[in-house]
Structure formats: C-alpha cells, structure tokens
Design a protein around this nucleic acid. Sequence first.
DNA 1: TTAAGAATTAATCAAGTGTTTAAATCTTTT
DNA 2: AAAAGATTTAAACACTTGATTAATTCTTAA
Lengths: 205, 205
Amino acid sequence: MAKEVKDSSTEEKIKNAARVIFHQKGFAGTRTRDIAEASGINLALLNYYFRSKEKLFDLIMTESLEVFFRSLHSVFNDPTTDFEEKIRRIVENYIDNLSANPNIPIFILSELRNHPEELIKKTGAKKVFLDSVFMKQLKEEIEAKRIKPIHPLQFIMNLLGMTVFPFVASPMIKGIGAIDQAEFESLMQERKTIIPDWIKSFLTP
Amino acid sequence: MAKEVKDSSTEEKIKNAARVIFHQKGFAGTRTRDIAEASGINLALLNYYFRSKEKLFDLIMTESLEVFFRSLHSVFNDPTTDFEEKIRRIVENYIDNLSANPNIPIFILSELRNHPEELIKKTGAKKVFLDSVFMKQLKEEIEAKRIKPIHPLQFIMNLLGMTVFPFVASPMIKGIGAIDQAEFESLMQERKTIIPDWIKSFLTP
DNA sequence: TTAAGAATTAATCAAGTGTTTAAATCTTTT
DNA sequence: AAAAGATTTAAACACTTGATTAATTCTTAA
C-alpha cells in the first residue's frame, strides 16, 4: 500500500531525473548510473522500479511524444475554430510547450533516426496531421481561392520549420546571434505573433 | 612512402565508414567495432590510423561543419549578388548540400547539445552569418523600406527553419505524409524555388 | 508487538567497449 | 636478396555498464 508514497517519491524521482538526462544525451549517451546519481537513489532501484534502462526510456519517450504531438490533436481537430485561428493556436501552443520542454524536439528527432517506423506509428502522426480538420480547412481555403495553392506537406514543413526549428537549433542560434537564454526566450515569445503573420502573408493570393 | 596508397585505401575506407555511422548514430551510439566491420578492416587499424575513437570523431565533425557552414560563407559574402539573389542561392546551395548529406543537420545539432561552446566557436558561425554582407544588405533593404522591418535572427530562423528543418525531421515528414524517399526528394527540389517566393512575400511591405 | 511484505543498499556479475600488444605479413629500399 | 620499415592481424587487457543478488532496513497489517 505504499503506492501513493511511491509515486510521489522514489519512482517519480527516478523518472524526473531520467527525463532530463535522456532529453539531454539520448538513449546511448545516458548511463543508468547518471540517472541514479541525479535522482539520489541507489542504482539497483532503477531496475527495481522500471526493470531495465530500455523500459524506462520507452516510458519517457512515450510521454515526450505525448507532449510533442497529442497536445496538438485537439487544436488540429477543433471544429469551432477557423483556419487562421488554428494557425495562431498551433503556433502558440507549440511555443509554450517547447519553451517548457526545450530539449524534446531534438531528443525525439535524434532517436527517430534509429527506430523511424515504430516511433512514427506510436504517434499516430498521420491522423494528427494529414487527416485533421485543419488540413481539410486548408484544402477548402485553397478551393475557395481565399489562399494560394500549396501542397499540404509543404505547408506543414513551413509551419513546423518556423516553429520547431529554433528549439532544435537553439545552441546554434544563441551562438551565431551572440544572445543568452533570456533573449532567446523573448525572441520565441515574439514568434508567437509574427509566425502567423508570415504564414498569412505567403498564403494570401 | 605508402602515403598515396594509404590515403586512398585503408585510412579513407575507415573515414568513409565512420562518417556514415557517426552521422546515423552519433558519437555515443557508435562502436568502434561497427566502424571496423563496415569498412572491412581489422579493429586495431582504427587506432593505428586515428589514435582514438574521439580523434576520428573530431575529424568527421570538422568535415561535417565544413559542409554545413563553410560552403555558405562565399554565398553570404559575395558582394556581386543582391539580397534577393543571395536568398535564392543560399536555399539552393543548402538543399543541394543536404540532399547529398541528409544526416548532417541532425548529427551536428544533436552533438551540439553536449559541447555547444567549442563547436560553435569552431564554426565561426557569427562571422558567417551576422557579420556577413548578406545581413548588411538585409539592414539596407529595411532602411530603404524596400522590405518590412525584421529582427535579423528572426529572419535567419525562418530561412534555416524552412530550409534545414525538413532534413532534420525527414523520418517524421515521411511518416506523417505517408511518402517515400523519392517523393521527399522531389518535394525538396520544389522547395528550392518556393522558399524564396515565400520569403519574398512576407518581406515585401 | 510481531510477522510479512516492500523498499533500499553494497557488492558482484557478465557482457560490452575502447585500446594495446606482440607477432605475422606485406612493401620498399639498398 | 635481405634488411628495414609499414601494415595487418588475432588476442588480450583494463575499464565501463546494465543488471542481479543477498542481506538489511523500513513500513504495514494482523
């Protein structure tokens, strides 16, 4: 009956440390001893609670995919918002999520090279993106000639590129711009409003 | 005096195999035995020619940074091309380079999280980007009110985001779009012309 | 209170990993 | 052709790493 205590102490401590380190160094770069040390627990407890490094990793990865994809599902499929409004919400939602978890994109994308198929399947990415209300609305807007014709994937690449890439490349951005974390974050906040503006301007006929 | 032979056989074989595997799996995920096997050489030869896994890695990383950054230096600083022309050339140059070396961006960016400072310094990124003729021209265009005002870093993030991100996220793009490598490449070719169009459209006042 | 189960610990194991060694083979020079 | 040097090889070494074990401490239920 130590379930409640467990969830909020040892088990959770391990998971939190694991998330930070996995996000920073990836699966191969992370040693179970690092996780144990960072969470202040005995090495054996990692296997006691999670069976193996890989099981723990899968847990963190599933959670991370949830943050990266699932939070968008509702926005993409909200029937009550129009196309423009969805763009604003997607960008804002993403930038908020990634500001709180800045290492998630590079973590997911770099692990993705090792197991592309299964991870993609896990996300249900196709459902979330291409089969969404958002994409239907994009096509409608194009048919109604309210926006310029564009391949849906080209559009998604622009949207994600402009929104996600700065987080993937943040050390590089900070380096070439000679700015610190605070300035970087402020630029990201600014992007919440200007990315939708840019998108609108290259979509309008 | 076997120097000529050496460069074109064993040493080069190791380097080529190392490049492929490092690009795919990163430093931590690569085992020297994998490199040896992939290049068909005895394990000890890796240390015979390159001293250590880390020295070999540094060599590959330096080369990769060269591809990723230095090829742009001349384009960024060409005084004979105007602002618009430079955008076209940068995008085309990048897409050509990355089509030939699609794993370089995710490789560099994921290794970058471990050693941000030194790697950034190695690239001379600030010189290549912010202090370039290209950025001077951007400021001139803004002052002359020929384009909308924009923070140089915001501009660079859009340019790189739209150009580089698809390569970083290619497994994801292919997954969510249900397309194969050939279709992906064709989309990338298309982007060579449409990215400059998009940029132009959101820069014009 | 005490027995039973859960949680924690230090020590250890077995496999994996980067590297080295010493001998063998090949190449070049005289 | 023989000596000297470069290259290659199989084997081993030293260390790391994920995982397990067996004992100990803590917690809970009767």
